[in-house]
């Protein structure tokens, strides 16, 4: 089935099931994911919004 994704990275992410829209980077107890902090306090270490809806300052992986 045609997914509509055009780029290799997105097609690959879809196939590997790592690119799910709601996917979360997994955490290790007491350790931030790749050092990234959690702006939501809900384990979304790369979330894009604070719990109050404000956009969160993401590191884009660039900072990790």
């Amino acid at each position: 089935m045609e997914s509509g994704k055009k780029t290799f990275a997105f097609k690959l992410a879809e196939k590997k099931q790592s690119g799910l829209k709601d996917g979360k980077w997994t955490a290790r107890a007491g350790v931030a994911v790749a050092g990234c902090t959690d702006p939501t306090g809900q384990g979304m270490y790369r979330a894009s919004e604070y719990t109050d809806g404000r956009p969160a300052p993401l590191d884009k992986g660039y900072w990790c």
């Binding site: 997105f10 690959l12 996917g23 790369r46 919004e49 660039y62």
Partner: peptide, 25 residues
């Protein structure tokens, strides 16, 4: 394969409703 710019596939650059993938190792 490695991403060069964004292992989270620019998920932070778009609104939540436009997000179609979260990351690619």
């Amino acid at each position: 394969f490695k991403t060069l710019s964004s292992p989270i596939l620019a998920a932070d650059e778009v609104a939540a409703e436009d997000r179609i993938a979260s990351h690619l190792s």
